[in-house]
């Protein structure tokens, strides 16, 4: 496939994006980890947080992946309706993933569900995961998240009775976390999706994880719920890696959608402390800027 200049730029920028996500902890996450270390009183938790912070510093300095599980690669793409590349974008993302897997290197994590055979390059059926949105304008925004396997283990979907949903919601969230958060490398970040169809609730929960830590939902009712849940979760005593401690979650993020009157889907997607994400915006002239 002969690539145009702009297509080359998309591949190059995506590789840089993947490298940044795999090897550099985002500043909001580093701040949250340092705050957690300041507030933590349990010795084992403090010792592990210190090691986690040191690990991030080494990874960034030596340009190696923070964690060996470089995850299933998830892209969130916003395509401006005047940006020249459209359907071909999927192929370009795949090309970038293949190259990045070799050069960074990333761990090949795309495995056939029945045979267990690894494709070897992180590209396969619906891998990488790509969520696309069409937006006005002429640029292309690509965000990436490397979603580790262990952190998916405790994720849950509940369909609550609408008449009792708001009373039951804290219990569903707290129980899921109390029982299984230790498997997903706490201090965790909790993504919650409220409403819509069941699949959309989980998608919202995953998308919620991309919002900067410390930033509340713009809807004050939702923001209040985020804060309330965060306080409750941090009273569970799970601590770093589930060995006991004051800080179990770095943040709680909720996204919502209107729901059917008869159902109240609640999606919970947990994220390990190593929230690896990065973003970039590409202009039609081929200039681009990396961000978080």
């Amino acid at each position: 496939m002969e690539l145009s200049y702009l297509e080359e730029v998309v591949v190059e920028a995506t590789i840089k994006l993947l490298r940044r996500a795999a090897t550099e902890i985002p500043p909001d996450v580093m701040n949250a980890l340092k705050n957690a270390l300041r507030m933590e009183t349990h010795e084992l938790a403090k010792r592990q947080l210190e090691l986690i912070i040191k690990n991030c510093e080494i990874a960034s300095k030596e340009n190696v992946p923070i964690c060996q599980d470089t995850g299933l690669i998830c892209f969130f793409v916003r395509v401006g309706d005047e940006f020249p590349i459209k359907a071909n974008l999927y192929q370009l993302l795949e090309k970038a993933v293949r190259k990045a897997t070799k050069t960074i290197p990333l761990r090949p994590n795309a495995v056939h569900p029945i045979t267990g055979i690894n494709t070897g390059d992180n590209v396969g059926r619906y891998a990488p995961v790509v969520e696309t949105e069409l937006v006005p304008g002429d640029s292309l925004e690509i965000k990436v998240m490397l979603k580790g396997g262990g952190s998916e283990y405790p994720s849950r979907l509940y369909v609550l009775k609408p008449s009792r949903a708001l009373e039951v919601l804290p219990k569903a969230v707290l129980t899921a976390i109390a029982k299984r958060a230790a498997f997903s490398c706490p201090p965790i970040i909790v993504g919650i999706g409220l409403g819509s169809t069941v699949d959309m609730a989980l998608r919202l929960a995953r998308r919620a994880l991309m919002r900067p830590l410390g930033q509340r939902n713009e809807d004050s009712m939702i923001a209040e719920l985020e804060e309330k849940l965060l306080k409750m979760i941090n009273r569970l005593g799970i601590g770093t890696m589930g060995l006991g401690g004051d800080i179990t979650a770095l943040d709680v993020k909720i996204e919502w959608a209107h729901r059917h009157p008869a159902s109240f889907p609640l999606g919970i997607v947990l994220q390990c402390w190593a929230l690896r994400k990065a973003s970039c915006t590409i202009r039609p002239d081929g200039s681009y800027r990396l961000g978080w």
Binding site: I52, N55, E62, I66, Q68, N118, C185
Partner: peptide
Amino acid sequence: PGGAGAIAAKAIKRVVDVKWLDLGMPE
């Protein structure tokens, strides 16, 4: 501590052997 892959790798001095690469690198 989970996630601290860069630090853990530092303690590994040598790959003495590898078996079953047909299962893929992680397995």
